[in-house]
Simulated scan of single mutants.
Amino acid sequence: MTEPEYRIRARCTDSTITVYQAYAPEIGLPAARDGSFPPAWRRDRMTWIKPSFLWMMYRCGWGAKERQETVLAVEITREGFEWALERACLSHYTHGLHPDRAAWKRLLRRAPARVQWDPERDLLLRPLPHRSLQLGLTGEAARRYADEWTVSITDTTALAHEIHGHVRAGDLEAARRLLPREDPYPVPDGLLDHLRR
């Protein structure tokens, strides 16, 4: 079956979705230890969450990039995730979706969330023909994410390193067996209509 170009794939339950972020240890370790973001986590800046584990690995270099050494799996409420998607704006102007550039810029300034669709990655971190969602949260959305939507925070750095070890050794099957299972997210009808070309 052909993968659609735009689809959210994620680990989810009936009430939660898991997203990934990577931080320096001074943020990531206390967040995982306490199950909540520490005071040093700034609620007044944009934060990007990614439902795709492999896209996060591409972004953080399997947890090896500076200030991204701690990889977190953050379980949040689906209600919160969908609240952000409903109020999000695409991070770039798209002809035919937005009336014009000025209208898109007004939407972007007001929106508490923004969406980018970037090529999904395979185990070698090569781009795939279908896209993966990144959700940027700012203002009210960032505060709600940290203080209301977060259900649990787990340090998955060791898992990232273990999978990467198998990839480096050429054992892609062993690496694949360890990947978190990500299924198509059950998007309510119409929720993404303003976020896809």
Score class of each variant (00 low, 15 high):
Leu124Ile: 09
Pro112Glu: 04
Arg143Pro: 10
Val115His: 00
Leu128Cys: 07
Ser152Pro: 04
Tyr185Val: 08
Tyr93Trp: 15
Gly80Ala: 08
Trp83Gln: 06
Ala160Lys: 00
Thr156Pro: 00
Leu123Tyr: 06
Asp183Pro: 00
Tyr185Met: 07
Cys89Phe: 00
Tyr185Cys: 04
Glu82Ser: 07
Thr154Gly: 04
Gly170Lys: 11
Leu108Gly: 11
Lys105Ile: 13
Trp83Leu: 02
Trp117Gly: 01
Asp147Leu: 04
Glu173His: 03
Ala84Ile: 08
Pro129Asn: 09
Glu173Asp: 14
Asp147His: 06
Tyr145Ser: 03
Pro180Asn: 05
His95Tyr: 15
Ala160Arg: 00
Gly170Phe: 14
Arg126Phe: 08
Glu82Met: 09
Leu97Ile: 14
Leu133Pro: 00
Ala103Tyr: 14
Lys105Val: 14
Gly170Glu: 09
Thr138Gly: 14
Ala146Arg: 04
Thr138Pro: 00
Pro129His: 10
Thr150Ala: 06
Phe81Cys: 07
Ala160Thr: 08
Arg87Glu: 09
Leu133Trp: 00
Pro186Met: 09
Arg176Pro: 04
Gly136His: 01
Phe81Ile: 14
Glu173Lys: 03
Ala88Asp: 03
Gln116Glu: 11
Trp117Asn: 02
Arg87His: 12
Val115Ser: 06
Val167Asp: 10
Val167Cys: 11
Glu162Pro: 01
Ala174Leu: 01
Thr138Trp: 10
Ala146Tyr: 06
Ala169Lys: 10
Pro99Ala: 15
Gly96Tyr: 12
Leu124Ala: 15
Gly96Gln: 09
Thr150Tyr: 05
Ala175Ile: 03
Asp100Ile: 15
Ile153Cys: 07
Leu123Trp: 09
Ala113Tyr: 05
Arg121His: 11
Gly80Lys: 01
Ala84Cys: 08
Arg176Lys: 10
Phe81Lys: 01
Pro112Ile: 03
Thr138Ile: 12
Pro112Cys: 02
Arg106Pro: 00
Thr156Trp: 10
Arg181His: 10
Arg176Asp: 12
His98Trp: 12
Leu90Gln: 13
Leu172Gly: 07
Pro127His: 13
Gln134Cys: 05
Leu125His: 08
Arg131Met: 12
Ala102His: 15
Leu178Tyr: 01
Pro184Phe: 12
Glu140Gln: 04
Leu137Val: 08
Ala169Gln: 12
Glu120Leu: 11
Ala158Trp: 05
His92Arg: 14
